[in-house]
Amino acid sequence: MNDVAAAGFGFYDGIAPETDFDRLADGSAYRPLPGDWFVGVADIVDSTGHIAAGRYKTVNTVGAAVISAQINAAKGAAFPFVFGGDGAGFAFPEAHRAVAEDALARVIRWADEEFGFTMRGALVPVADVRAAGLDVQVARYRPSTGVDYAMFAGGGLAWAEKAMKAGRYGIEPAPAGTFPDLEGLSCRWTPMRARNGKILSILIVPQPGAAPGQVAGVAQRVLEITKRLDRGGHPVPAEGPGVGWPPEGLALEAHATHGRTSLLRRKAYLLAATFMAYVLFKTRWRAGTFDPSHYVHTTRDNADYRKFDDGLKMTIDCDAETRMKIEAVLKRAQADGIVSYGLFEQDEAIMTCIVPAVSRDDHVHFIDGAAGGYTSAATAIRQTAAGASQA
Rank of each mutant, 00 (worst) to 15 (best):
L200I: 08
T283Q: 04
T145V: 11
A111T: 06
A268K: 14
M351N: 08
H234S: 11
M119F: 06
G84S: 04
W189M: 08
V355Q: 09
W37M: 05
A5L: 07
T274M: 13
Y269P: 13
A160R: 13
G156Y: 10
M1H: 14
P17L: 02
Q383S: 14
T61N: 10
F366W: 13
G27V: 10
L312V: 07
G146Y: 09
F115L: 03
I51K: 06
A95R: 15
D291A: 02
Y169V: 06
F81D: 05
T352S: 11
D36I: 11
R265Q: 15
V138S: 03
K331W: 13
F81W: 12
R188K: 13
A150V: 09
P206F: 03
Q214C: 09
I108W: 08
I67S: 04
F83Q: 00
Q346C: 15
T283E: 12
K57C: 03
R193T: 05
L271F: 06
A371M: 01
R332P: 03
S262N: 12
Y149W: 05
K307W: 09
I225G: 11
L104E: 07
R168F: 13
G40F: 07
Q390W: 14
A277E: 11
H294P: 12
A287W: 09
S293L: 14
F79N: 00
V279N: 04
G337A: 10
Y169P: 08
E345I: 00
T190Y: 02
M192R: 02
F366Q: 02
V355T: 12
G27H: 03
A303H: 06
W159K: 04
W285R: 13
R260M: 13
T283F: 01
L229H: 04
G167V: 01
A78S: 15
V279W: 01
D317C: 06
V129F: 13
C187Q: 06
A210Y: 00
V218I: 03
V45S: 15
Y269H: 15
A74H: 05
E224P: 10
A163R: 13
F308T: 04
F115E: 00
M151S: 01
R306I: 13
E161A: 02
A211Y: 12
N302R: 07
V147Q: 05
S186Q: 14
Y141T: 05
G85V: 08
A29G: 09
S28C: 10
D291K: 01
A132M: 05
A272M: 12
A371N: 03
Q207N: 10
T257Y: 08
N2Q: 05
L312A: 08
T384W: 15
M324H: 14
H96P: 08
Q220L: 07
G27D: 03
L182W: 06
D86K: 00
I326F: 04
A256S: 11
A95S: 12
T322K: 05
N302V: 01
D310P: 09
M164E: 00
P180A: 06
T178P: 04
L280E: 00
W110D: 01
N302S: 04
G249P: 11
Q346G: 15
A100Y: 07
D13K: 15
K313M: 14
K313D: 07
Q383T: 13
G288F: 06
G87D: 04
S262M: 07
F152E: 06
L250A: 09
F92M: 09
A78F: 14
T299D: 00
